[in-house]
Design a protein around this nucleic acid. Structure first.
Length: 464
RNA sequence: GUCCCCAUCGUCUAGAGGCCUAGGACACCUCCCUUUCACGGAGGCGACCGGGGUUCGAAUCCCCGUGGGGACGCCA
């Protein structure tokens, strides 16, 4: 059978890191088996779903390059299908109307909690052979409930967690359609997974408890039961659960902060999945290697430091032109206008090794295009009066030097020799005058890129 | 409270009963490279939650405990 997986987010917020990993694994599983990856938007919660969130999810998926083969399907556009199925269930007795009010149910729940019982529907309106149902109250719009079996167990072999068995006595009759007639999540999922021919449901393990209910409904509909793989959750850097209030960030924020999608993808792939000792691999390699057997069942803590390390790796490996295009925009955001000279590509080539993010890269090379602000501590330490004579001489030599790193290096060396200094005694002040900082790549290379005119201007701007 | 799940270095993980003196990666520390800072290279520190079984042999299997997490919505 052809593999068909799906990613089914609800558009109530941005695509966060946990959702992105779920999507990645679903995508990779489909690719690995030559199957289809389907995107389905679960927007049946009309009150909380927004078109902005839909767009945010689409943007996030696009940035990561997780392209779906089918969809996006929107559940709100499939109402007729759901209603048809509900009618069938009402007719064959696997679903029924329930007139219990919200207040009634709330009171029931509280009472059960007080008695240290698991809160659940009491089955008041559940039709049974020989049972007389209460009189239908006036003015109450009924909900529709699924008539869950009361005996036996539901079991499945979870592809990540192994066999899970839950007694039907633990389950109650869940609502499949609201009083206003709109179907609810658990029901839509069942109908969609069934009709869309999903073969492996790969999702977060907060859905484990929904699985037995869904299986029961699938059985009631005579549908084929897909396989399930429940992924454990991703914790924040601090080990705390990620939530909207705490730590959860959009994948697009990683874009804004200067992470490459390759790095995020590679990092996410290794969060909960492994292929021996392999750490760095391409998306293509991942899709060839991916399997459900090597997914860890336990929760994983996000580690930004490792993400940065990977991002640095991909920055070092990226094509210069691709980096230049991106960095130019980031510089523009910093109000730095990139000019033809100094060469942006050269500046990036010089700095990429030390940048963990593209933002860092942009910031670190901004001084090529705008006068540096001298770091006070560095200036005090290195811009001392005693080197003034050496710099007078250096200016003369630079004036006539061929403008390449070797010649510049030779010029500095000549001054160093002439004044009996050590190389850093000249290099460090130069560093501060030209870049504003005490750290930079080889100063001769920096100078070569900056250009003779600008180098001399910056040296002259400092009075020793 | 009830049900379900989870448990190897600080973090991500390898590990499918002997290959484990528990391997790799990030982080951290030391040294090398060096013109500073990085990059790179070489080392180092550092873990099988506890207790019982099963077995000739257990990080790996079973049970109990402990700890963590999830679910219990007319949310998804």
């Amino acid at each position: 059978m052809t593999v068909r997986t799906r990613f089914a987010p609800s558009p109530t917020g941005f695509l966060h890191i946990g959702g992105a990993r779920t999507a990645l694994f679903s995508y990779a599983f489909a690719k690995k088996h030559g199957g289809a990856f389907i995107l389905r938007i679960e927007d049946t919660d009309v009150a909380r779903s927004t078109p902005e969130a839909v767009q945010a999810i689409l943007d996030g998926m696009a940035w990561l390059g997780l392209q779906h083969d089918e969809g996006p399907f929107y559940q709100m556009q499939r109402m007729e299908t759901y209603k048809k199925v509900i009618q069938t269930m009402l007719q064959n007795g696997t679903a029924y109307y329930c007139y219990s009010s919200r207040e009634e149910l709330e009171a029931l729940r509280e009472q059960q909690m007080a008695n240290k019982q698991k809160p659940r529907y009491d089955g008041k309106w559940r039709p049974e052979a020989g049972k007389t149902l209460p009189e239908i109250p006036a003015g109450v719009e009924p909900v529709i409930r699924f008539k869950n079996p009361q005996e036996g167990v539901v079991a499945w072999d979870d592809l990540v967690k192994g066999r899970i068995e839950i007694a039907n006595s633990e389950l109650d009759d869940l609502i499949i359609a609201r009083a206003d007639g709109t179907p609810t999540y658990n029901f839509c999922v069942v109908v969609d997974d069934w009709e869309m021919g999903i073969t492996q449901v790969i999702r977060g393990d907060d859905h484990v408890n929904n699985t037995p209910r869904q299986i029961n409904m699938l059985k009631a509909l005579g549908a084929t039961i897909p396989q399930y793989a429940h992924l454990s959750m991703i914790l924040g850097d601090d080990g705390q659960k990620l939530s909207k209030r705490h730590g959860a960030v959009s994948v697009m924020q990683y874009h804004e902060e200067g992470y490459l999608p390759e790095a995020v993808l590679n990092y996410l792939a290794r969060l909960g999945w492994s292929h021996g000792d392999d750490e760095v691999f391409s998306m293509q390699q991942f899709c060839e290697w991916f399997d459900l057997d090597h997914i860890t069942p336990s929760a994983a803590q996000f580690n930004t430091e490792k993400l940065k390390w990977l991002n640095n790796h991909y920055i070092k490996a990226a094509h210069l032109n691709v980096l230049a295009q991106d960095v130019q925009q980031r510089l523009a955001q910093l109000n730095v206008r990139v000019t033809a000279q100094p060469s942006l590509n050269d500046a990036i080539a010089l700095y990429r090794d030390r940048a963990n993010t593209l933002n860092e890269l942009a910031q670190s090379i901004a001084y090529f295009y705008q006068k540096p602000v001298l770091d006070a501590a560095a200036a005090e330490k290195h811009l001392t009066a005693d080197i003034a004579p050496a710099f007078e001489r250096l200016k003369v030599l630079l004036q006539t030097a061929d403008w390449n790193a070797e010649a510049i290096h030779a010029a500095i060396n000549a001054v160093v020799a002439e004044f009996g200094l050590k190389f850093p005694k000249v290099a460090m002040p130069l560093r501060v005058m030209l870049t504003g900082n005490a750290q930079s790549p080889s100063i001769d290379q920096v100078m070569a890129i900056l250009g003779k005119e600008e180098v001399l201007a910056r040296i002259n701007a400092v009075s020793l």
